[in-house]
Design a protein around this nucleic acid. Structure first.
Length: 331
DNA sequence: AATTATAGCAACCGCCGATGT
DNA sequence: AACATCGGCGGTTGCTATAAT
């Protein structure tokens, strides 16, 4: 037969430890040690606690030479570099930091260090994005859009330009409705409730602060009506099809050339701005959005795969960024 | 001043390899 | 050899303090 059950689950106390309980446990272990049996220990000293709970309390708070809070920069660096090389092996990381417990390090990582690194990563991404746009503009010989992009000001604002249209491939949309709805929400979009627009452009129409529209391909046939209904009558539509990791995106751009802005650049900028503003708040690498029909985001917890991109140098981040670029179809 | 949102963290849960019976 | 618990670990929860509205 096996061993006896470790404790009577229904008859043990849970929740925060009282000073009296702490004192009992500490005094006993300092005098007698754990005796190699945590399960039997609480009964010996009259504590209505599970043995596991006693072990945790001792290891994380009561044993001598425990440090709490006040992580130094050196400790932060050690945690970060170890996390990046071995992942969430907290006990191993803790072993490299005398006086620190795995639980403390885990909490510190989850509540502070992770955010710190995310901010750093975003900064690097922004730099890469600026660098990319600068390269494009060198080719185009136009600094207007670059400055606009840096300031995050939509190019059409203040210029009395008509709004642009983003037209999303039907299949891509159907496979990623949640993600696209989320994307729209993140960048200020919402379901459009203009009855005239809805009736004229069919199923999938969203308004993003009246700047973008995303609708289904078959809406395109009737979308001239909706487009005209939303703005001027003298509109030129310049659809360009992009393939983004297998997802086909038709981006329709209204009258970008009114301001002598290279049309394709504006289209690219709009699209990348959206991806970045979405991904910048949700994950690290910025390469999740746009992955064909399995488009996914890492909301909430952070996986090791997400963080691994941080190991890369700024140059390699730039590569990732370029990898995520939509490719113009037919070129 | 009251209410709501967010951050920080202690403690619990459940899994898994090691080990005792 | 088979079974059951122990010990250790990482993930997650939920309470409390603080900040924001």
């Amino acid at each position: 037969m096996g061993r006896a059950p470790c404790c009577d689950k229904a008859n043990v106390k849970k929740g925060p430890w009282s000073p009296e309980e702490d004192a009992k446990l500490k005094a006993y272990i300092e005098q007698n040690g754990t005796g190699g049996n945590w399960i039997a220990l609480p009964q010996k000293i009259g504590l209505k606690r599970c043995g596991k709970s006693c072990r945790l309390r001792w290891l994380n708070y009561l044993r001598p030479n425990i440090k709490h809070g006040g992580f130094t920069e050196e400790e932060e660096n050690i945690i970060c570099s170890l996390y990046l090389s071995i992942g969430s092996r907290w006990s191993i990381i803790a072993a490299q930091l005398p006086g620190r417990t795995d639980n403390d390090i885990k909490n510190y990582w989850n509540t502070r260090l992770k955010k710190k690194l995310m901010a750093k990563q975003r900064k690097e991404q922004a730099a890469c994005r600026a660098s990319l746009l600068e390269q494009e503009l060198k080719r185009e010989g136009d600094s207007f859009l670059f400055n606009q992009a840096l300031n995050q000001v939509p190019y059409w604002e203040g210029q009395q330009l008509a709004m642009p249209i983003m037209h999303l491939n039907h299949d891509a949309y159907l496979g990623n409705q949640d993600q696209f709805t989320k994307l729209l929400t993140k960048i200020g979009g919402q379901l459009h409730d203009d009855p005239q627009l809805i009736s004229s452009s069919m199923d999938y129409q969203y308004s993003m602060q009246d700047h973008f529209y995303v609708d289904s391909p078959h809406a395109l046939a009737s979308s001239s009506a909706s487009m005209n209904s939303t703005n001027t009558n003298s509109t030129e539509w310049q659809p360009t099809e992009y393939d983004f990791n297998g997802v086909s995106l038709n981006i329709h751009q209204r009258q970008a050339n009114q301001a002598n802005i290279p049309t394709e650049l504006v289209q690219l900028d709009m699209y990348l701005s959206n991806l970045l503003s979405f991904e910048g708040t949700e994950s690290y690498s910025g390469i999740d959005v746009g992955k064909s029909s399995t488009m996914s985001t890492s909301v909430g917890s952070t996986s090791w795969a997400d963080m691994s991109s941080l190991v890369n140098t700024p140059e390699s981040n730039f590569d990732i960024y370029q990898k995520g670029m939509p490719q113009k179809v037919g070129q």
